[in-house]
Design a protein around this nucleic acid. Structure first.
Lengths: 255, 255
DNA sequence: AGTGATTGTATCGTATTGTGATACATAGCG
DNA sequence: CGCTATGTATCACAATACGATACAATCACT
């Protein structure tokens, strides 16, 4: 197994998440690698066009090459293509912003998004991953996962500031909310994603009883007020059922 | 310089552009690598979660991990953030789909896109790169490049079927069109991107006289008919000037 | 301006790691 | 059923990545 490739990936991953360009020594320190190794990796990536020096400095950052590759991958992605029309229709008919998310265990990743007419309450972007315990998108899936998976859930999300920590709520309340979600088949989050933004999500299945992800509807609390939760919730569940159907999936537990 | 990392990138790049999942031997053949090397690289990437086997087969394809990384990079990309509102406004006020492209020498890459109300004449997606000689997006930039850059331009784009090959037109006509583009400051393409789809593009600058890319307006030939070219062309030039301003650029040649 | 610490980059002997020919079992196909 | 092509495993060899060290440039203080 090629350790050098793993080092390359470590560097790329780190730079992808870094807010600012990083220097060699800085990198070496933060990802625990030998300075020489980092230097070699970075100069290789730089020659290949994946990394560049920020103009004026000697610090490095990723170019858009990685993004180019990634967009080709997602363009061809089956599930996304199949479900996009559903999002589009949902956004148009409700006026809200609609997301598609997929489960990537203890996270959900937003895979697609169609903005509604009700303004853009600047929320998540496709590609971002969030612990399943923190938003409606995740809770909708979490509620249907087998018990043993829930046990090992990391309770500590202190670095995800600005999110309501669902798992950190007392175990009693958690079980209770899971039960509620299972019954009405959608999850709700008030200000979970961002202050003043509400969202409702319902799970999607594929294969036999395999949780795939969720359909999420989001808007600020004025447009998506608690009074409308059950009305919109029903529509989200409907969209999620369509999505499950499109993927040829079978829901669990059966209705 | 780490050759192993380069091999890893070769595999990733190839898989990113491959339409179907690829087997080990297949890969080894097509990217001219030793089978053992490919096997080692692929299993490393697979362990790291960047590659997976298509269910039921033993062929490999990329997961969405690369895409996740890439989306973080583009989310933070300065120019894109700055210019997005311009695209949004353009799309809303004209009803056409508006693109932002950047120059990556002999190509332009679509960096952003906002769809207009006039239906989606399913064209390019952000992330795709196209030779500058083939579309309005490219020609708008090409026309202002220094002469020596134009000399070495690859004339053979036979693999880009469905595109009108601008560079393949007789040199006379080419020089003439470049002159026209320089004068009115926008480039036009009828059916260049796709049969029945027209587009108009104007160049953007940054720094001192550095060509950055272009603003492109696209629609099917019914909505964007040749009679409207000069009217819409003026608006595209206006948008591009705003964009140049937003980037703090200086146009060349001066108006 | 001067000093000291930190940084990016270059060097080099060593041994770890990737190499690639070979082998084998399995899957696919006529 | 037999053939070919494929994915995976093995192994001795040598190329390659390693990492301590060195040096010059830059930066941050005083």
């Amino acid at each position: 197994m090629s350790t050098t490739i793993l080092k390359g990936l470590r560097v790329i991953e780190f730079l992808a998440h870094a807010k600012e360009p990083k220097g060699i020594s800085e990198l070496a320190r933060e990802i625990e690698m030998n300075k020489s190794a980092v230097q070699r990796v970075v100069s290789t990536l730089s020659n290949a066009g994946y990394v560049e020096q920020a103009p004026g400095t000697s610090k490095y950052r990723l170019t858009l090459s990685i993004w180019e590759l990634g967009s080709h991958v997602v363009d061809r992605h089956q599930a996304r293509r199949l479900l996009h029309p559903i999002l589009r229709f949902g956004a148009q008919s409700t006026g809200f912003t609609v997301f598609l998310s997929y489960l990537s265990f203890p996270f959900v990743v937003y895979l697609d998004k169609v903005e509604g007419a009700h303004g853009r309450s600047h929320t998540a972007e496709p590609g971002s991953r969030i612990p399943i315990t923190l938003t409606a998108a995740g809770k909708a899936v979490l509620a249907f996962l087998p018990d043993e998976k829930l046990q090992g859930l990391d309770q500590d999300h202190s670095d995800w500031t600005g999110y309501v920590n669902f798992a950190a709520t007392p175990l009693e309340a958690l079980r209770e909310e899971i039960e509620t979600i299972r019954e009405r088949r959608y999850a709700v989050s008030e200000g979970g994603m961002k202050q003043g933004v509400n969202s409702i999500a319902a799970p999607i299945w594929w294969r036999e009883h395999q949780p795939y992800g969720s359909i999420v509807v989001t808007a600020d609390q004025v447009n998506l007020s608690p009074e409308r939760f059950s009305e919109i919730g029903a529509r989200v569940v409907g969209m999620a059922e369509e999505a499950t159907l499109a993927l040829g999936g079978v829901p669990f537990p059966p209705l």
